[in-house]
Design a protein around this nucleic acid. Structure first.
Length: 813
RNA sequence: GCCGGGGUGGCGGAAUUGGUAGACGCGCCGGAUUCAAAAUCCGGUUUCUUCGGAAGUGCGAGUUCGAUUCUCGCCCUCGGCACCA
């Protein structure tokens, strides 16, 4: 019997896996595949506990599936483009590429030290031209297909640093480096028509049982499909302003219109109205993100223009309002203060009329009445309900040619242009004669120069590098300029999961192997990606499908969204100084302990509260398991006697516990994904086996059966220690390729069962009954229980509820 | 503000389909071992209690024989809100 030495044991197991290339896989049409994937990391520096948790989750599932006999793909790579590399470059005067590659090396070493069962031969990094060339290639394909277009869109402009800022670089409306007031600036940018796929993205959600409902609901709301009317309002001295409304039934209640500050009407009206001009300038300094728009003070100004109400002919004043989004619908709304709360508050503030045109309960002097109901004060539409009014008005306006039924989406097209350096160059060339021309396939990739110098403003260096942007037009051969914007990094993360199937394929974006591995069977990552990343990836997958590159409709069959790792109730972050370095823990306790703790401390979806004592507990458990198994083997050897004859009661119970645990652990890992309860069950079995000191042949056989299966079951969590114990059990194969334990259902049969007896819902006693006992027998036995009898005596029994196998509730008065 | 989570002992959490609230672990208390300590092992541990019991899962109502679980209304907290990834 030897003591447990994690460092030694872990080195040994890792060397074995390396020697046998245990986790490198090839497509094999004759074997069931299982593709298990954790969201790839941004190479920010060293690993943190969030990474450990994320990759241990996929690790446990991957190793479990492998033991079930599946051909398991469990790859790793890096989401290597992004803003932090540029920040590090400015701060440390290092090239983003060098910084990134260094971090990748460091993190790879830590991944290996943790013993993750990755197929390292498939490692990829999105900043490598071999990867992003296919992203550029696909962009050109989509351009040719008409799914790409260019339009003006708003960015955060820092007027001092003369650069575009990301939202997180704007603090309280000011640039984080310069401190200057950030303004909204409109510049031309490239967009992908994700809205063309809105309906399919929405409809597919109904057929994705492997995704959490919460994520599907969030995506549905994000897509925000609605049916309404687009109506044209004539505005004398301007022209026509179209609005979109989902509540045409409230049309008679319109008391004003509101347009976005960027709306052409507002711009025209401001031309000879200095006060209005000032207001628009003021609006341009306000943040345009949705949270800010929704919470800021609602402000507006009359433009001096009046629209004509399309039904009554009455004049309707047109206002500019800071809360109207130019990017949603038409950038103009009709305002019905009586039946919309935001319009209501605005009308109260500016003393605009509030009228009721829908008959509903409520007090209009307190709040808008937003419930639907029958129309009142609405001319010929009076008395109709919502559906009737919608249909009648749609018919009226369509006949008049001034309105139409329209399906609208909250989802906007995907702006992919970033005015930043460390990203994939957008493969477009601008020619004075030919306009925007995509880079021809044979000229791809457009390689991002890696030797660059940064100044403190954070502006992209390639915008100042003629050797990068000076080129010739692919169409006319004349002088031309390259696009210097790069892609949103969500572009890279939208298809990496597919590229893992063939990372070294040079003749195309994806090879046939993609269709063997895809879709991903289990995808794991933080909830914070519930909408953006996961929606973009779903969109991209459908685009890949329509290009004939994959034959599935959705990329991820099952999704697990993990919670954050907290310390003292707050998210671990460098700025808070509450980080825990996994490396120190690995050095002190070993990888198995760190892995076990991260799985045991909380269920995957919930946040995990960090606890040093909890880690010690995990280490203590592994130590105890090691000692128990080695002590048993030292005493009984690794060749157990055969079980024979009848088992006594304690032996039966021990076997029941062993097989009940196998059943539970299998369900917890394979179906429920509650690894914390799987570990708890294994701890219970460990405790039970420790106390079961039966030295008879049958007893030793049962103990061997228990420890043997326990070593297998703990192996996805603590694979190094399990491998060492496996060898002590006399096995010569790799444990990670051994078969997962199977349940002996005959061991689960019990002929007696304990039932709980309640009186008026309160626990009063317990009875032991035959498993197949009839209801009357159970009832009789329950009433005969002394303590139950005490509480029932002298009272009238109203009814007795018997829940088979569980409890009896005697209702008395 | 809108959308989606979460709230259970001193702490992390369990209770899988409406059926024993607190599994498992941590901490703490007691014991064994030790010259002593660490480590290890064994036992106890929701609160109150007149020792019969009673109360108890963020707060307030409701449905039910029975609610941590379902319904309604609140409070607190975390994630997302389109250029952080």
């Amino acid at each position: 019997m030897s003591t447990y030495n994690p460092q030694e044991v872990e080195q040994h197991a890792q060397a074995l896996w390396e020697k046998h290339q245990a986790f490198e896989v090839k497509a094999d049409p004759n074997q069931d595949k299982f593709y298990c994937l954790s969201m790839f990391p941004y190479p920010s520096g060293k690993l943190h506990m969030g990474h450990v948790r994320n990759y241990t989750l996929s690790e446990v599932i991957a190793r479990y599936q492998k033991m079930l006999g599946k051909n398991v793909l469990h790859p790793i790579g890096f989401d290597a483009f992004g803003l932090p590399a540029e920040n590090a470059a400015i701060k440390n005067q290092r090239e983003p590429a060098e910084w990134t590659y260094n971090n990748m090396d460091e993190m790879s070493a830590q991944f290996k030290r943790l013993g993750f069962a990755f197929d390292w031969s498939r490692q990829l990094a999105t900043c490598q031209p071999e990867y992003y060339r296919w992203e550029q290639w696909m962009f050109v394909k989509l351009y040719e297909q008409g799914l790409v277009y260019r339009k003006d869109a708003v960015v955060n402009w820092d007027p001092v640093d003369q650069t575009v800022l990301a939202n997180e670089q704007v603090e309280n409306g000011r640039g984080w480096r310069s401190g200057a007031e950030v303004i909204r600036k409109s510049i031309p940018q490239w967009f992908l028509k994700i809205t063309d796929y809105a309906d399919e993205l929405l409809a597919s959600l109904d057929d994705m049982p492997g995704w959490p409902d919460s994520v599907k609901i969030m995506q549905r709301n994000w897509i925000g499909k609605s049916k309404g009317l687009e109506l044209d309002f004539a505005v004398p001295d301007f022209g026509t302003v179209s609005i979109y409304t989902t509540r045409p039934d409230t049309l008679y209640g319109v008391s004003y219109m509101a347009v976005a500050p960027e709306h052409p009407l507002a711009v025209q009206a401001a031309a000879n109205n200095p006060a209005l001009g000032d207001f628009l300038t003021q609006c341009s300094k306000e943040q345009s993100n949705e949270a800010a728009m929704a919470t800021m003070e609602k402000k507006g100004m009359y433009t001096g223009l009046d629209a004509v109400h399309p039904l009554t002919g009455e004049p309707v004043p047109v206002w500019v309002a800071n809360f109207v989004l130019m990017t949603y619908g038409t950038g103009a709304v009709m305002a019905v203060p009586g039946h919309d709360q935001r319009d209501y508050e605005f009308a109260q503030k500016y003393d605009l009329p509030i009228t009721q045109v829908i008959a509903t309960e409520g007090d209009l002097s307190q709040a808008a009445l937003t419930e639907k109901g029958l129309l009142i004060e609405s001319g010929e539409y009076t008395g109709m309900d919502f559906d009737q009014a919608f249909a009648a008005m749609a018919q009226h306006f369509e006949a008049a040619g001034t309105g139409r039924v329209q399906i609208n989406y909250r989802l906007r097209d995907w702006g992919v242009s970033r005015q930043r350096y460390w990203g994939c160059p957008i493969p477009i060339i601008y020619c004075d004669a030919c306009g925007a021309v995509p880079v021809p396939e044979e000229q791809l990739p457009v390689v991002l120069p890696e030797e660059v110098t940064f100044d403190e403003t954070g502006g992209s260096p390639i915008k100042k590098m003629p050797e990068f942007y000076q080129t010739t037009c692919p169409q006319c051969g004349g002088e031309a300029t390259r696009e210097t914007d790069t892609f949103d990094t969500f572009m890279e993360s939208s298809w990496y999961y597919a590229r893992y199937s063939c990372p070294d394929y040079h003749d195309g974006m994806l090879s046939e192997e993609a269709n063997y591995w895809l879709p991903v069977d289990q995808y794991i990552g933080g909830v914070e990606h519930a909408i953006l990343h996961l929606l973009y990836a779903r969109f991209y997958h459908k685009v890949l499908r329509d290009q004939g590159l994959v034959n599935s409709d959705e990329p991820f069959t099952h999704l697990l969204t993990q919670g954050m790792v907290l310390k003292d109730g707050a998210k671990m972050s460098k700025s808070k100084g509450n980080t825990v370095d996994p490396q120190e823990l690995i050095d002190q306790y070993g990888a198995d302990t760190v892995r076990l703790f991260s799985m045991f401390a909380a269920p995957p979806e919930q946040s995990l509260e960090w606890s040093e004592e909890g880690v010690e507990g995990a280490a203590r458990y592994l130590n105890r398991l090691w000692n128990q198994v080695t002590a048993f083997l030292a005493a009984a050897g690794n060749e157990p006697p055969a079980m024979q004859g009848d088992l006594d009661k304690a032996q039966q119970e021990m076997r029941w516990k062993i097989h009940q645990t196998i059943d539970k652990v299998s369900t917890d890992i394979g179906e429920r994904k509650t690894f914390n309860t799987a570990i708890a069950a294994m701890m219970e079995l460990t405790n039970a086996l420790s106390k079961f000191a039966d030295g008879t042949d049958n007893g030793i056989a049962i103990r061997h059966e228990g420890w043997y299966n326990l070593v297998k079951m703990i192996s996805p969590f603590a694979p190094h220690m399990a491998q060492a114990l496996w060898e002590q059990l006399g096995e010569t194969s790799l444990l990670c390729t051994a078969a997962w334990p199977t349940v002996d259902t005959s061991a689960l049969v019990q002929d007696e069962i304990e039932m709980v007896v309640q009186v008026n819902g309160k626990l009063r006693g317990k009875i032991s009954v035959a498993t197949n006992a009839a209801k009357d027998e159970v009832e009789a036995q329950a009433l005969a229980e002394p303590n139950v009898h005490k509480f029932v005596d002298g009272k009238t029994i109203r009814k007795v509820i018997v829940v088979p196998q569980r409890l009896v509730n005697v209702v008395v008065s």
